[in-house]
Amino acid sequence: MSSAREATPADLDGCVDALAEAFADYPFTRHTIAADDHVRRLRACHELLIREVGLPHGRVHVIDGPDGIDAVAVWTPSTPAVEEALTRAAARLAELAGDRAAMATAAESVLAEYRPPTPLWFLAPVGVRPGRQGRGLGRAVLAPGLAAADAGRMPAFLETSDPVNVGIYRRMGFSVLTEIDLPHDGPRTWAMVRPAR
Protein backbone atom coordinates (compact mmCIF):
# COMPACT_ATOMS: atom_id res chain seq x y z
CA MET A 1 0.00 0.00 0.00
CA SER A 2 1.26 3.47 -0.85
CA SER A 3 2.07 5.88 1.93
CA ALA A 4 0.59 9.34 2.25
CA ARG A 5 2.34 12.38 0.89
CA GLU A 6 1.71 16.10 1.22
CA ALA A 7 -0.47 17.48 -1.57
CA THR A 8 0.52 20.36 -3.84
CA PRO A 9 -1.69 22.77 -5.79
CA ALA A 10 -1.24 20.48 -8.81
CA ASP A 11 -3.17 17.79 -6.89
CA LEU A 12 -6.29 19.93 -6.49
CA ASP A 13 -8.35 18.29 -9.25
CA GLY A 14 -7.38 14.79 -8.10
CA CYS A 15 -8.34 15.63 -4.51
CA VAL A 16 -11.72 16.96 -5.63
CA ASP A 17 -12.35 13.87 -7.76
CA ALA A 18 -11.64 11.53 -4.83
CA LEU A 19 -13.70 13.51 -2.32
CA ALA A 20 -16.65 13.92 -4.70
CA GLU A 21 -16.82 10.14 -5.05
CA ALA A 22 -16.37 9.55 -1.33
CA PHE A 23 -19.06 12.07 -0.34
CA ALA A 24 -21.59 11.39 -3.10
CA ASP A 25 -24.14 9.99 -0.64
CA TYR A 26 -22.80 11.29 2.67
CA PRO A 27 -25.67 12.26 5.02
CA PHE A 28 -24.26 15.64 6.07
CA THR A 29 -23.55 16.95 2.57
CA ARG A 30 -26.85 15.58 1.25
CA HIS A 31 -28.55 17.60 4.03
CA THR A 32 -26.57 20.83 3.58
CA ILE A 33 -26.03 21.03 -0.22
CA ALA A 34 -28.92 21.33 -2.67
CA ALA A 35 -30.03 18.18 -4.49
CA ASP A 36 -30.26 20.17 -7.71
CA ASP A 37 -26.92 19.66 -9.50
CA HIS A 38 -25.63 18.15 -6.26
CA VAL A 39 -22.41 16.64 -7.59
CA ARG A 40 -21.25 19.89 -9.21
CA ARG A 41 -22.05 21.81 -6.01
CA LEU A 42 -20.27 19.22 -3.86
CA ARG A 43 -17.18 19.33 -6.08
CA ALA A 44 -17.12 23.13 -5.97
CA CYS A 45 -17.36 23.14 -2.16
CA HIS A 46 -14.44 20.74 -1.83
CA GLU A 47 -12.40 22.66 -4.38
CA LEU A 48 -12.99 25.96 -2.59
CA LEU A 49 -12.12 24.59 0.85
CA ILE A 50 -8.94 22.85 -0.31
CA ARG A 51 -7.73 25.74 -2.49
CA GLU A 52 -8.55 28.58 -0.09
CA VAL A 53 -8.16 26.94 3.32
CA GLY A 54 -6.49 23.52 3.33
CA LEU A 55 -3.52 24.08 1.03
CA PRO A 56 -2.51 27.60 2.15
CA HIS A 57 -3.31 27.35 5.86
CA GLY A 58 -3.44 23.67 6.84
CA ARG A 59 -2.21 20.30 5.68
CA VAL A 60 -3.56 18.19 2.84
CA HIS A 61 -2.35 14.61 2.55
CA VAL A 62 -3.07 12.22 -0.29
CA ILE A 63 -2.46 8.62 -1.28
CA ASP A 64 -1.90 7.96 -4.97
CA GLY A 65 -3.58 5.04 -6.70
CA PRO A 66 -3.43 3.47 -10.14
CA ASP A 67 -5.97 5.91 -11.60
CA GLY A 68 -5.26 9.08 -9.64
CA ILE A 69 -5.61 10.05 -6.00
CA ASP A 70 -7.36 7.38 -3.92
CA ALA A 71 -7.49 9.05 -0.49
CA VAL A 72 -7.44 12.61 0.83
CA ALA A 73 -7.26 14.12 4.32
CA VAL A 74 -7.58 17.86 4.89
CA TRP A 75 -6.49 19.23 8.26
CA THR A 76 -6.86 22.83 9.43
CA PRO A 77 -5.47 24.33 12.63
CA SER A 78 -7.62 26.57 14.79
CA THR A 79 -5.87 29.82 13.84
CA PRO A 80 -7.02 33.32 12.91
CA ALA A 81 -5.79 32.77 9.33
CA VAL A 82 -8.10 29.77 8.94
CA GLU A 83 -11.03 31.66 10.44
CA GLU A 84 -10.42 34.55 8.04
CA ALA A 85 -10.21 32.19 5.06
CA LEU A 86 -13.47 30.49 6.06
CA THR A 87 -15.15 33.87 6.48
CA ARG A 88 -14.05 34.88 2.98
CA ALA A 89 -15.41 31.59 1.60
CA ALA A 90 -18.74 31.76 3.47
CA ALA A 91 -20.76 33.64 0.83
CA ARG A 92 -19.67 31.28 -1.96
CA LEU A 93 -20.36 28.22 0.21
CA ALA A 94 -23.87 29.55 0.96
CA GLU A 95 -24.43 30.06 -2.77
CA LEU A 96 -23.31 26.49 -3.47
CA ALA A 97 -25.63 25.16 -0.74
CA GLY A 98 -28.53 26.56 -2.78
CA ASP A 99 -31.95 25.93 -1.25
CA ARG A 100 -30.24 24.20 1.69
CA ALA A 101 -28.25 27.25 2.77
CA ALA A 102 -30.45 27.80 5.84
CA MET A 103 -29.98 24.16 6.85
CA ALA A 104 -26.22 24.46 6.39
CA THR A 105 -26.13 27.61 8.53
CA ALA A 106 -28.23 25.99 11.25
CA ALA A 107 -26.05 22.86 11.27
CA GLU A 108 -22.87 24.94 11.50
CA SER A 109 -24.31 27.03 14.33
CA VAL A 110 -25.23 23.94 16.38
CA LEU A 111 -21.94 22.14 15.75
CA ALA A 112 -19.86 25.23 16.58
CA GLU A 113 -21.19 25.13 20.15
CA TYR A 114 -19.44 21.80 20.77
CA ARG A 115 -16.05 22.53 19.22
CA PRO A 116 -13.34 22.81 21.86
CA PRO A 117 -12.07 26.39 22.36
CA THR A 118 -8.49 25.20 22.83
CA PRO A 119 -6.00 25.08 19.92
CA LEU A 120 -6.49 21.93 17.87
CA TRP A 121 -6.24 20.34 14.44
CA PHE A 122 -9.62 19.97 12.74
CA LEU A 123 -10.13 17.09 10.30
CA ALA A 124 -12.48 18.06 7.49
CA PRO A 125 -12.81 16.36 5.17
CA VAL A 126 -11.26 12.93 4.76
CA GLY A 127 -12.34 10.51 2.07
CA VAL A 128 -11.37 7.36 0.21
CA ARG A 129 -12.73 6.48 -3.22
CA PRO A 130 -15.52 3.90 -2.74
CA GLY A 131 -13.79 1.29 -4.89
CA ARG A 132 -10.64 1.55 -2.77
CA GLN A 133 -12.21 1.45 0.70
CA GLY A 134 -11.46 -1.35 3.15
CA ARG A 135 -7.73 -1.44 2.36
CA GLY A 136 -6.41 0.70 5.18
CA LEU A 137 -6.10 3.84 3.05
CA GLY A 138 -8.15 5.95 5.45
CA ARG A 139 -5.90 5.14 8.38
CA ALA A 140 -2.80 5.68 6.24
CA VAL A 141 -3.87 9.07 4.90
CA LEU A 142 -4.72 10.24 8.44
CA ALA A 143 -1.40 9.13 9.95
CA PRO A 144 0.72 12.20 9.01
CA GLY A 145 -1.89 14.63 10.35
CA LEU A 146 -2.22 12.75 13.62
CA ALA A 147 1.58 12.64 13.93
CA ALA A 148 1.75 16.41 13.37
CA ALA A 149 -0.92 17.00 16.01
CA ASP A 150 1.02 14.83 18.45
CA ALA A 151 4.29 16.60 17.66
CA GLY A 152 2.62 19.94 18.37
CA ARG A 153 0.92 18.52 21.49
CA MET A 154 -2.47 19.49 20.12
CA PRO A 155 -5.69 17.47 20.11
CA ALA A 156 -7.30 16.35 16.87
CA PHE A 157 -11.02 16.98 16.35
CA LEU A 158 -13.58 15.82 13.80
CA GLU A 159 -17.28 15.59 13.09
CA THR A 160 -18.91 12.68 11.29
CA SER A 161 -22.46 11.93 10.23
CA ASP A 162 -21.78 8.28 9.42
CA PRO A 163 -22.22 5.89 12.37
CA VAL A 164 -19.79 3.42 10.79
CA ASN A 165 -17.06 6.04 11.03
CA VAL A 166 -17.51 6.37 14.79
CA GLY A 167 -16.07 2.91 15.42
CA ILE A 168 -13.24 3.48 12.94
CA TYR A 169 -12.21 6.72 14.63
CA ARG A 170 -12.51 5.18 18.09
CA ARG A 171 -9.93 2.58 17.04
CA MET A 172 -7.64 5.47 16.10
CA GLY A 173 -7.84 7.01 19.56
CA PHE A 174 -10.79 9.38 19.17
CA SER A 175 -13.61 9.49 21.70
CA VAL A 176 -17.11 10.90 21.31
CA LEU A 177 -17.43 14.38 22.75
CA THR A 178 -21.11 14.73 21.88
CA GLU A 179 -23.82 13.24 19.67
CA ILE A 180 -26.26 15.64 18.03
CA ASP A 181 -29.35 15.38 15.83
CA LEU A 182 -28.94 18.34 13.49
CA PRO A 183 -31.85 20.76 13.02
CA HIS A 184 -34.36 20.54 10.14
CA ASP A 185 -34.41 16.74 10.35
CA GLY A 186 -30.67 16.63 9.73
CA PRO A 187 -28.53 13.56 10.29
CA ARG A 188 -27.19 12.47 13.64
CA THR A 189 -23.64 13.79 13.92
CA TRP A 190 -20.84 12.85 16.28
CA ALA A 191 -18.16 15.27 17.43
CA MET A 192 -14.99 13.39 18.37
CA VAL A 193 -11.67 14.37 19.88
CA ARG A 194 -8.30 12.65 20.19
CA PRO A 195 -5.84 13.99 22.78
CA ALA A 196 -2.24 14.52 21.74
CA ARG A 197 -0.06 11.52 22.44
Rank of each mutant, 00 (worst) to 15 (best):
L12Q: 02
L12P: 05
D13V: 01
C15S: 01
C15E: 10
C15Y: 03
A18V: 02
E21D: 06
A22E: 01
F23T: 05
F23H: 06
A24R: 14
A24N: 01
Y26I: 08
R30A: 13
A34F: 15
A35P: 03
D36F: 05
D36M: 08
D37Y: 01
R41S: 10
R41F: 06
L42A: 00
C45D: 12
C45P: 01
L48I: 14
R51P: 04
V53P: 05
G54P: 03
H57T: 02
H61R: 12
V62F: 01
I63F: 11
G65W: 02
G65I: 11
D67E: 14
G68V: 03
G68Y: 07
D70Q: 07
A71H: 09
V72I: 02
V74R: 12
T76I: 15
P77L: 04
P77R: 07
T79G: 06
P80Q: 11
V82Q: 06
V82K: 04
E83I: 00
E83F: 08
E84W: 03
E84M: 07
A85C: 07
A85G: 07
L86C: 09
T87G: 13
A89Q: 12
L93A: 13
A94I: 09
E95H: 10
E95P: 00
L96R: 04
G98H: 02
D99W: 02
D99N: 00
D99F: 00
R100P: 04
R100S: 08
R100A: 11
A101L: 11
A101S: 15
A102D: 15
A102F: 08
T105K: 14
A106T: 08
S109R: 15
V110W: 05
L111G: 05
A112I: 00
E113W: 06
Y114T: 12
R115L: 15
P116L: 10
P116F: 10
P116Q: 14
P117M: 06
T118F: 11
P119A: 09
L123M: 11
A124S: 13
P125W: 02
P125V: 03
G127P: 07
R129M: 08
R129S: 05
R129L: 08
G131Y: 02
Q133D: 13
R135T: 06
L137R: 09
G138W: 00
R139D: 09
R139V: 14
A140W: 00
A140E: 11
A140D: 14
V141M: 04
L142F: 06
P144F: 03
P144G: 01
P144E: 06
G145R: 10
L146S: 11
A148R: 08
A149Y: 07
A151I: 05
G152S: 11
G152L: 00
